[in-house]
């Protein structure tokens, strides 16, 4: 059996759950086995949403499982594993799975490969594909033989669709909460301090290639000139050179402008998740191997500071 841990937050099932179920379907084509969703806490309505995607739903309900915390989740997952004896357990490589999966690996002695962009099972042996060195290199991994494997799957990698509709049976497992050392307190949503970049038609976005904060006015002036808003990738917001509300990516904003002009952005997957659905993506980067060129429609291998003044002139005409 493949056991997919459903991910939900604040009353919503997250897309990555269905992405993992679609990957599970593909794996089960090669190695026939049942697909199960494990739902911890959350709402009963989630069961209907998951039903078509799997053969079984294992539901563990408790107020302690409503908001994620590693200790009660460990106990509930251990019960689910004991009840179903899965070959492969899948969790998302999100803020949730990054926190939980290594803890499960240690406490339940599960061999773990994190942040997979592909997973296969052949003759009971796990193989995965990962990206390393910021996406510049791929790494194909074959594991030693184990009874059970745990993987985390990179969000946004698989389409959240399945080929064959299933009809899941539901199994509930009772749960008695214990006492825990870590306590969930509250969710916080960051206020937008200035403009909302997600509604812009044209976005000029800067990355590490901006070099120093003194260079930002050059790009700001260019953006103003062509009626674009200025956004950035993580390194620029991390350094505090632009507010966090301007950050495009998995932890920041998702944008879909008509034009996304990426200047000096290498294009980590975290960034790509936030902008890959832009209608036209243009990337300017000195490094011809920057991952951004894989998803851009047009690319220029050059120094952004050579391009900006000339392009500004051309657009004035």
């Amino acid at each position: 059996m493949i056991l997919v841990l459903a991910e939900h937050r604040r009353g919503e099932l997250r897309d990555v759950t269905f992405e993992m179920l679609s990957l599970a379907e593909r794996i089960s084509k090669e190695s026939p086995m049942e697909i199960a969703s494990l739902l911890l806490g959350g709402e009963r309505g989630f069961i209907d949403k998951l039903k078509d995607f799997c053969d079984r739903i294992i539901f563990v309900d408790s107020p302690e499982l409503k908001n994620y915390s590693p200790e009660p989740y460990l106990e509930a997952i251990k019960k689910a594993i004991d009840a179903t004896s899965p070959k492969l357990i899948m969790i998302s490589h999100s803020s949730f799975g990054m926190d939980l999966a290594p803890f499960l690996s240690e406490k339940l002695s599960l061999p773990l490969i994190t942040d997979c962009v592909d997973v296969s099972l052949k003759e009971g042996r796990l193989a995965t594909l990962r990206q390393i060195y910021g996406g510049k290199i791929f790494s194909e991994i074959r594991l030693k033989p184990y009874e059970r494997y745990l993987v985390t799957v990179r969000p946004g990698t698989f389409e959240p669709e399945i080929r064959e509709k299933r009809s899941a049976s539901v199994m509930e497992i009772p749960f008695q909460a214990g006492t825990y050392k870590r306590r969930f307190l509250e969710y916080i949503e960051e206020k937008i301090e200035d403009i909302d970049i997600s509604s812009a038609d044209i976005i000029v976005s800067i990355g590490r290639g901006i070099g120093k904060p003194e260079n930002i006015p050059i790009v700001q002036e260019f953006a103003d000139e062509i009626g674009a808003v200025l956004a950035c990738s993580r390194p620029v917001a991390d350094k505090g050179w632009l507010p966090k509300s301007r950050q495009v990516g998995i932890s920041g904003k998702t944008v879909k402008p008509k034009i996304y002009l990426a200047l000096g952005i290498s294009g980590s997957f975290q960034h790509q998740v936030g902008m890959k659905n832009s209608k036209t993506i243009i990337a300017v980067n000195k490094d011809p191997k920057a991952p951004i060129f894989n998803i851009a429609h047009y690319g220029v291998v050059a120094d952004m500071f050579q391009v900006i003044p000339v392009l500004k002139e051309k657009l004035k005409k």
Partner: peptide
């Protein structure tokens, strides 16, 4: 967390 959301623990 994701999408401009955080949690305190």
């Amino acid at each position: 967390l994701e999408s401009n959301t955080f949690e305190n623990v």
